[in-house]
Design a protein around this nucleic acid. Sequence first.
DNA 1: GACATCTATATAAAGAGTTATATAGTTCTT
DNA 2: AAGAACTATATAACTCTTTATATAGATGTC
Lengths: 225, 225
Amino acid sequence: MSLDYILLGLLREPASGYDLKAVFDERIHYFWPAELSQVYPAMQRLEDKGLLRSREAPAKRGPRRRVYQTTAAGHRVLRQWLDESPELGDERIGFLAKVYLMDELRDLSKTRQYFRELREICATRLEELQAIERGWAAQDPHYPDALSARMFHVSLTLRKGLSSLATHVKWCDESLRRIEARMGKERSNGRTIPRHTLDSHRGGHHRTDRVLDSRSRKQGRPAAR
Amino acid sequence: MSLDYILLGLLREPASGYDLKAVFDERIHYFWPAELSQVYPAMQRLEDKGLLRSREAPAKRGPRRRVYQTTAAGHRVLRQWLDESPELGDERIGFLAKVYLMDELRDLSKTRQYFRELREICATRLEELQAIERGWAAQDPHYPDALSARMFHVSLTLRKGLSSLATHVKWCDESLRRIEARMGKERSNGRTIPRHTLDSHRGGHHRTDRVLDSRSRKQGRPAAR
DNA sequence: GACATCTATATAAAGAGTTATATAGTTCTT
DNA sequence: AAGAACTATATAACTCTTTATATAGATGTC
């Protein structure tokens, strides 16, 4: 489970669960969100395994704190994980699932509206990340050169966020262009065409419409992965 | 839960659990993977709620099949979900978590090797999607124009996959350039510098190194989201 | 006929993640 | 002095997902 390794990595410098939550919400959540209710038991488990150690720390401003830190064994486990080959992993992208099925609404103006909102959300997050990068550049006259090893690797992930979100926005724009072009055609074909027959009007050769038809697939690949 | 809505969407055309698994592994898994052990109970639950109906179907080649289909109530629930505003949602991107922490290995050639492998994985998947698009283009002389509403929306999601993976590959290439430039500098600075002091050699002004330091954050935003 | 493979459904158990709730000291404001 | 807001830890209940296991008919092959 990646959360365990992320904790081992973050706790190379000592921190409490509460501290970590702030770090997750500030930086890590872009690629791995976590709740306090997940972090506290995970830290206990990792301490039981000898991968973390903890101590009571004097609190500056609040109640008692329990501060955790990665042990030598924890470092070894972390390094072993980091040394494994990359995997693309399972991504669950809810907004794509919706687009995939959105023909059900039979109303392109709703699809258009969806993409307009999505574009704004992505653009806002892109600005968030750009602000982080500007902050780094303001603090460090050499940025993005001459970084410490730590910051160099972190900056690699920031660049990923920046390029991904820029691509998101571009995809929304491209989609909006396609949607609007299609809406133009729909209008010129006449509004009065009953919607449930629209598809067949537009040439009946769409064998690929049968997205769900399992008989059309080339070969039964094994169900297991 | 999105899986339920995806099932309502896919079962607008009747299919068995086994059929659906093939559809998931062929297309849907790019944005929402699912196992049979999740699909079967989910379909039963949705039938209990009246959103799906099922019947025994004669099997052409195997044992008995139970074929499910979305009811009118199911269509309504699906449409209601589709009509909600988009959300970016929580993405868990394991390969980014690794890069974020990979300074722990203190060996840039390992980081480089990681990116080389990741690049190959992404390029392979990109080719997969390009092959799907070529297949569509071969079947339909007008592609990507004059699509049915169904295929139009599906093609919007395919374009997302294509642009995302192309960006992945470009990010890997950019990262490899940066890593190699850095390795060049490391060599010219002399191999004999003890690794644990390398950071301080390279200008001690990196306040942003303290990624974990919660005291440096601007304001305590509420822990809740 | 034995064995492997494919089609097909189903459930149990374990693991991962979210939401809700409880507790309590500290600090700041009114 | 009261109350709100913040710091801090913890657990329970629930939901979602994965992995493992069981069953069994149909088909193909050696």
